[in-house]
Amino acid sequence: MITEAKSIVKAELNSEKIGESIVVKNLYKSFGNNHVLKNFTMHLKTGENLVVLGKSGSGKSVLIKCIIGLIKPDAGSINVLGKSIPDLNNNELDEIRVKIGFLFQSNALYDSMTVRENLEFPLRRHKINLTKKEVEDLVMEALTNVGLAHTVDMRPSELSGGMRKRIALARTLILKPDIILYDEPTTGLDPITAKEISNLMRELAKKYKTSSIIISHDMNCVKAVSDRIIMLIDGVCYSDGTYEQLKQSNDEKIKTFFE
């Protein structure tokens, strides 16, 4: 009887593991004496939009940079789509990165390239067998998705902040990743453009069935896109719940964000 119960629990745990795109356990990261992440643990379920909420400098961006392998953690495990990120070599990291899109806070569009070349760049690296026509079709599809097909031959410097964000989103989605990491996607945008970007994120996540981690402290964006929210306070996962659950919390630290 006990053995049967144990096996049921084990089966449940396995099925839960299958449904998790990212699992972070006991993560530590310090910069000198600044201990940014202290025993941080979280998971991202497949198909979920998870918002990581926290003050500026609380380590949110460090967390997603650790997840994509841009920063090496001091200790702890990061498992993305079944692969342990800190243990991968550069080639293995490149392989897993094809399945992860990253939208940078500053958009990180290549200034020396046109919008077309910006979008072609990841395709030419990873889909080397594509014909010129197929590359063109994928570029135009990505631009049409964000409503900016007419900007294809423009340079990033000729575009507004909102347009640059949309182009960066199109570039992030062009390889059709399984997971997207958004680093403050609406920061520096006016409320209308921020709302448009939030809606676009939601639509594209549904269309491409992606899982997302969204770093933000724009509460309108958080409300619009989140399925679940975790709060990163003092280097640990302080709280975990839906927008409505956290909004009703009486904890002072949580209330400050929702006021």
């Binding site: 940079k65 990253f102 500053s106 990180a108 200034d111 020396s112 760049f121």
Partner: peptide, 21 residues
């Protein structure tokens, strides 16, 4: 100046996450 501005605007990181060395 070119590489410096690419560094501070995260373009070098973007290149790395898109699988380019």
């Amino acid at each position: 100046a070119e590489l410096g501005s690419m560094k501070v605007t995260e373009q070098i990181d973007a290149m790395e996450v898109s699988g380019t060395n």
